[in-house]
Design a protein around this nucleic acid. Structure first.
Lengths: 217, 217
DNA sequence: CATACTTATTGAACACGTTCAGATTCTCAA
DNA sequence: TTGAGAATCTGAACGTGTTCAATAAGTATG
């Protein structure tokens, strides 16, 4: 590891630790620089903005999620179980940053932010996250209805974004309420999918699907 | 109107106009003060923070929405039509602030923000908004399924929040894409509701409802 | 080894949101 | 009318994220 890489890593490590320990607001760029023993300007040489450090966090959390979810997915073939596994491991890796969650979301939600999960800046991270859901769906037995299978991962990822939003606001002990929401909602989703056989429902599913497609372009 | 009220109104008017015309970031507290011909400190005498001015905007937009939606609701009894009316008038009143939407959402999404629609600070504004949806549901013929009627306004309001989020990111000309989403999604919602008669579906609806209730406490 | 060039680093400076001690203006009882 | 207390207003000051000219350190080239 070159000197340059060391400095970059040092800044990232210090910043992420401070995010966890004292929160977003109190983790000032000056404090990060001081803690890392470098100048403010030097931190900016490696990270274009404070938001960029949040992006670093996002990428790291994503990678952890992929690893943990991948491990858990080996345990089951049932779609509900797999989905729960993915969502719960997601909550697990985010847990240390809960107090910081609101600021993260506020940062991420700006269309211009490098952290915005829908924007170009984090295509890689989003793809990684999407891949987790794709794996969860594709490895499921019985398989999800054919006509849904292609769109399902993306829709579930969107659902995951919603869960994350809920989690940010969840002030219950250890965010148990979000856990209960996951456990309650996942079987409903699975049941809703299996309703594809019922004629009237199938029609609506088709319409929802075609709407979601037309909206995404 | 007292001098005090005049100053307050002046600050609010200047700020909201600048939000529309030059966006959130460029509308600095110093610029607002200069434009209003007062000192920065004086603006802070009436508004505790820049966020507070955003709250003022939220309240005003909400009031406009209630007025316009109320007028349009006289034209129809069909639930779909009424819902579309409410959502489209909502988009109408927000339209002038579209460029500013992302910053608004970023501000509003902080749990500590006075603008957060879920937080205590804006209970009044949220209630006003909820009331619009309650009117839309209650005045509908044929009426919505009995078991859903109590929860429907709140769920639809939540849907409206989602639409707003979509709108913020919608860069299409005049945000037509959001319009199409509304026009496409509303009939699906109505159709989903009418599925209450189908036994298997009814069961799922009950479960969704009880989950949503248990989550809200 | 010396030179030119690139990479890395510094710290002062800027505009921002926000605060606050003090100055000014208003209000109304005596 | 007066004067004391409340309401309103001022502008300098603070800490923030960010920028950038200047410097230092590192690296290849002759």
């Amino acid at each position: 590891m070159t000197k340059s890489e060391q400095t970059r890593q040092l800044v990232a490590d210090v910043a992420l630790r401070m995010f966890r320990e004292i929160g977003f607001a109190k983790t000032t760029m000056r404090a990060i620089a001081a803690e890392a023993g470098i100048s403010v300007g030097n931190a900016y040489y490696y990270f274009a903005s404070k938001d960029d450090l949040v992006h670093e966090l996002y990428v790291q959390v994503q990678a952890e999620h992929a690893a943990e979810a991948g491990a858990t997915l080996k345990d089951s073939t049932d779609l509900s179980a797999r989905l729960k596994a993915v969502l719960h491991t997601g909550l697990d890796v985010m847990a240390p940053y809960h107090r910081f969650g609101a600021d993260f979301v506020a940062t991420a939600i700006r269309p211009t932010s490098p952290v915005n999960p829908f924007a170009a800046g984090s295509t890689a991270a989003r793809e990684a996250s999407l891949a987790i859901f794709r794996t969860a769906v594709e490895g499921a037995k019985p398989a999800a209805p054919k006509k849904l299978r292609a769109d399902l991962p993306e829709l579930l990822w969107l659902f995951y974004m919603g869960i994350t939003l809920f989690w940010v606001y969840d002030t219950s002990e250890g965010q148990q309420r979000t856990r209960r929401l996951v456990d309650g909602a996942v079987p409903l989703i699975a049941r809703g999918l299996s309703l594809a056989r019922v004629p009237g429902v199938s029609k609506i599913q088709d319409d929802v699907l075609s709407l979601s497609r037309s909206i995404r372009n």
